[in-house]
Computed example of a mutant assay.
Amino acid sequence: MTVPEIAARGWYKSSYSAQANECVETRHSAPGGMAVRDSKDSGGPVLMFPADAWAAFIGAVKAGELPGA
């Protein structure tokens, strides 16, 4: 999937980010995966994660298994 194809679809940013552009945006991708990009560079590179990898990441975040920043 190319960046222009992804950019034409809806991206979502956390409501916790307020108006700041210092976060990431996410977008669901097929089949069930997740695309992630830097909110400051909407035309820049996009990371694509398969559904199982994204689910494992979210599970680890919720369980507090990842070190804090």
Rank of each mutant, 00 (worst) to 15 (best):
K62S: 05
M1D: 14
D52W: 11
M34C: 14
A53Q: 15
K13P: 00
D41F: 13
E5C: 00
A18Y: 10
E65F: 09
A55M: 08
H28P: 15
E25L: 02
A55G: 04
A69N: 09
I58H: 06
K62V: 06
V24M: 02
A56C: 07
P45Y: 03
E22V: 01
T26P: 00
E5Q: 14
K13V: 10
H28L: 11
G43F: 07
G43W: 04
S17R: 07
A8I: 00
S42A: 14
I58W: 06
G10Q: 13
L66P: 00
K62F: 03
Q19T: 10
I6W: 13
K62E: 11
S39C: 04
K40I: 02
R9Q: 12
A8N: 11
A35N: 10
A56G: 12
Y12E: 15
G64S: 07
Y12R: 15
G64M: 09
C23Q: 09
G64C: 04
A18H: 14
W11L: 03
A55W: 00
E25Y: 13
K62C: 01
A51V: 05
A53V: 06
V24H: 08
P67W: 02
M34P: 10
D38T: 04
E25P: 13
G32L: 03
A55S: 11
I6H: 15
F49V: 08
P67Y: 01
V3D: 05
G43E: 10
R9P: 00
Y16A: 12
A30V: 05
G68H: 11
V36N: 06
V36Q: 06
T2G: 15
V36W: 09
K62R: 15
M1T: 08
N21R: 14
A55R: 08
D38K: 04
H28C: 04
A18C: 01
V3R: 09
P50C: 01
V61D: 08
A20L: 07
T26K: 03
D38N: 09
M1K: 13
A8M: 03
W11G: 06
E25V: 01
H28T: 06
P45T: 09
A69R: 11
I58Q: 07
V36G: 08
C23S: 13
E22T: 11
L47Y: 07
A35L: 12
M48L: 14
D41S: 13
P31M: 02
V24W: 05
I58R: 11
Q19I: 01
C23R: 08
G32A: 05
Y12W: 13
P31E: 03
S42T: 10
G68I: 00
A63K: 10
V36P: 14
S15N: 12
A35T: 01
G44R: 08
G43I: 00
G68Q: 13
Y16E: 08
A60Y: 12
R27N: 07
